[in-house]
Amino acid sequence: MNIIRLSAVAKREVQRFMRIPVQTILAPLISAALYILVFGIILGNRINFLENINYIDFVFPGILMMQLIFGSYSQSAFSLFFHRSTKTITEMLTSPLSYSEIVLGYIIGATARALIVSSGVYAIAIIFTDATPANIPFFIFYVLVVSVLFALLGLLIGLWAEKMEQLNMLQTFVLTPLIYVGGVFNSIDMLPENIHWLVKINPIFYMVDGIRYSMIGYSESNLLSGAFFLTGSAVILFALVIYLFKIGWKLRS
């Protein structure tokens, strides 16, 4: 692993999203602010389903998680797709960059974008919520593992996609529904008992639940299993993406 080469790939990714800050940073901040305003404040003041926890404090970790997921996924998926479709990927393929340097560079760029957006969301939330993390190591773990996991998922889709709309398909038809039924806005206890299993097989539920625990100390799942599941998924996806880069799948004809 060569640090200069790795930082060049990461720098290119950061430069790319900083070139279009309205789309990559401002738009998700506005979207998150609206979620906080509508679900957290306007509706939240009328919802009292948990003792000692304000609805805004319950909802905010999920909103933060949404921004991490979308920021990280969009960055790596769109960037790799752009590099493939414009053939600028060949700048990297003809250089001595190792496959792990390329993949890690994309992950660092995607994580940087997710962290910048999330920090902005956090800054907005401080005004309205009790947003101090209760468990800082857990909070850092969940923020990083989720960013890395979705950066890797973005790379996988960025490699596979032949058309731009295929990048949005996963976001619209898979990620958004999973997020909405993943416990962002409601406790699992608010759902009919016969569909609890649906929530429990949804990986987003463990991410939202984990980050919620790290922020307000409230959890509805087995945190340890969730943490192992997320870390294991990230390791498997990393190995898969490196393998696909190595064999040149959809990269080298």
Binding site: R5, A8, K11, Q15, E91, S95, P96
Partner: peptide
């Protein structure tokens, strides 16, 4: 879309 000064700098980085 990238300025050529930045682009060539990145390529130098790819080569360590």
């Amino acid at each position: 879309f990238a300025k050529i000064e930045k682009s060539i700098d990145l390529v130098g980085g790819y080569f360590g």
